[in-house]
Each structure stands twice: as structure tokens, then as C-alpha cells.
């Protein structure tokens, strides 16, 4: 049985799910990669998906006590390893 965390894009996280940032895809411009790293999206950092407003709107993530909204272009280029099961939205 493979216990390694499942790797996926940040965009694929569901609300309530937590994951660890593992790296970045090539499609994200370098300047934006630098900016999201400055925001705390560094490899090893724990990120929570808080909300998915729907209709393709940017999703809401919390990292290091701050809350950010990222659109698909950014969140799909941030790779994460899922570290906790989905917690029901309370």
C-alpha cells in the first residue's frame, strides 16, 4: 500500500482540504512565482483551500495566517501534496 501523499495542483483542492506546497509549474511567469513565494507559498508550507466561489471564479486559500485569492492560471501551476482528508465545511 502506497502511503505517499497524493500530488495535485492547488486548483484541484476542495474546500476544507489541506496540502503541502511541493513546487511550481513552468506556465507560471517567474515574477508571479516569486510573488506567491513571498506570500508564503514556499515548498513545504501548509496551505488550506477555504472556498470555491464557483463559476470558475478565483478560489480562496489560507497560508501563514493570510488569505489569498488565486485564479486558475496561478493555482493550477502550484503543485501540492495532500496532507489531510477533506473536512466537512462547517
Amino acid at each position: 500500500m502506497n502511503n505517499a501523499p497524493a500530488a495535485k495542483a492547488l486548483w484541484d483542492l476542495r474546500p476544507g482540504e489541506a496540502a503541502t506546497v511541493t513546487g511550481f509549474g513552468d506556465k507560471l511567469p517567474v515574477s508571479y512565482q516569486g510573488r506567491v513565494m513571498e506570500f508564503g507559498f514556499q515548498p513545504g508550507a501548509l496551505v488550506h483551500c477555504l472556498l470555491n466561489p464557483g463559476f470558475g471564479a478565483p478560489r480562496v486559500y489560507s497560508i501563514c495566517n493570510s488569505v489569498f485569492s488565486l485564479d486558475k492560471e496561478v493555482a493550477a501551476a502550484v503543485f501540492v501534496a495532500v496532507s489531510s482528508p477533506v473536512e466537512a465545511e462547517s
Binding site: 511567469p29 508571479y32 506567491v36 506570500f39 478565483p58 480562496v60 488569505v67 485569492s69 488565486l70 485564479d71
Partner: peptide, 10 residues
């Protein structure tokens, strides 16, 4: 076009 990254302040 540029990606959308926005801080949501408390």
C-alpha cells in the same frame, strides 16, 4: 493577460 493574485484582508 496576467494572472490574478489578490490578498483578502481581514
Amino acid at each position: 493577460e496576467q494572472p490574478f493574485v489578490l490578498e483578502l484582508p481581514p
